[in-house]
């Protein structure tokens, strides 16, 4: 496991550097973005999220959207429009998600979707920032007495169709000369039910989704995660349309603002107090007292303050969704870089 984390850490740092600097190097003129203009004109952000999976995005019993991806959507709305509830959430299926984004129906897609070369190049999409690092994880019944992935040779695994998961399994089978069978499902509801009923020996998805799946099993305690992940590091994050760099930049820096808030130790509870005439230059920049960081993104300078006050820092959001108050998934790779994780960001000056 440590080997993977180390390798992943390197890739992640590299990715963050590339994403951060390659994007900002081109950022000369302040925002002139068709998407940003459209969002402001509409007075509402249209955010594509999952149709419903605990952890990332789901509607609670009262019909309110919750989750890690949802928090990012709300933060963008908060930055641009000054209110975290000016978002229209569109639940998208894995099949249609990129088409819906490309057509302009949604402004940004934050739907536990993996960053990949093909999606960046062939599908014409930008990949602003990663809000969840994971790897394709396998969940099996403890009663199978399987401890490692290669032992699943001959087993059948439930998978959602229209994902990178199928390809990863095909690659893994070929590399290890084994045969893990797959059963392809259209919707998570049926896939979860089939796994629970014993139609498959296990379920696979990214680590966060598997944790969500386990929470819907009849006896979650009967299930365990295998230590190996396949398909390398799976960075999940937001997607935007190519050709609107200013918008992509804004989406990216909204995520970075939530990370910066955690680094600076700003929480929802104390954001307003700490914004009262701080001395620390980092805090002054964050709260928009020095510099014109908001203007450069095409929003006002209090954008980051609002995010910290209304949404909270990244750590708080993680805790409420995947962490102890949510699905109980350890922070792991999603720790800040100085805690051995991959969540890193460029400096602000």
């Amino acid at each position: 496991m440590t080997g993977i984390v180390k390798r992943a850490a390197m890739i992640g740092a590299l990715a963050a550097a590339l994403l951060g600097f390659a994007g900002s190097a081109r950022a000369q003129a302040p925002a002139d973005s068709p998407t940003l203009k459209a969002v402001k004109g509409r007075g509402q952000l249209v955010c594509g999220v999952d149709t419903g999976i605990p952890g990332y995005a789901y509607q609670d019993a009262g019909g309110t959207w919750q989750g890690l991806d949802v928090a990012w959507c709300r933060a963008i709305a908060d930055a641009v429009l000054g209110a975290p509830d000016k978002v229209k959430f569109i639940g998208t299926t894995s099949k249609e998600r990129f088409s819906v984004l490309k057509s302009g129906e949604i402004d940004v897609l934050i739907r536990d979707s993996e960053y990949s070369f093909i999606r960046n190049t062939q599908l014409g999409l930008d990949e602003p920032a990663v809000n969840f690092y994971t790897g394709q994880t396998f969940m099996v019944r403890k009663s199978l007495n399987v401890a490692h992935l290669p032992e699943l040779n001959g087993a059948t695994i439930c998978v959602l169709t229209g994902t990178t998961l199928e390809t990863n399994i095909a690659d893994y089978n070929r590399a290890h000369n084994i045969k893990i069978n797959t059963l392809l499902f259209e919707r998570p509801e049926e896939a979860f039910a089939a796994a629970d009923a014993g139609r498959c020996d296990g379920y696979t998805d990214d680590g966060g989704s598997v944790a969500a799946a386990r929470s819907t099993m009849k006896r979650p305690g009967d299930w365990m995660f295998l230590p190996e992940t396949i398909g390398g590091l799976e960075p999940l994050g937001a997607f935007t349309r190519q050709g609107d760099e200013a918008w992509t930049r804004l989406v990216k820096w909204v995520h970075f603002a939530m990370l910066e808030a955690e680094i600076l130790g700003i929480t929802r509870a104390d954001a307003m107090d700490r914004a009262k005439d701080p001395k620390d230059p980092d805090l002054r920049r964050f709260f928009g007292l020095d510099g014109d960081f908001g203007k450069l993104l095409g929003v006002d300078n209090q954008w980051a303050l609002r995010i910290a006050r209304d949404i909270g820092n990244y750590g708080e959001v993680y805790e409420a969704t995947f962490g102890g108050s949510g699905l109980g998934l350890p922070r792991g790779m999603n720790n800040l870089f100085d805690h051995g994780g991959l969540q890193a960001l460029p400096t602000w000056h």
Partner: peptide
């Protein structure tokens, strides 16, 4: 999850 034309073609193939 029956792998017929719609499921495989409008799902996996389209997405890949």
């Amino acid at each position: 999850a029956y792998p017929e034309l719609f499921q495989i073609f409008a799902g996996t193939v389209l997405n890949q």
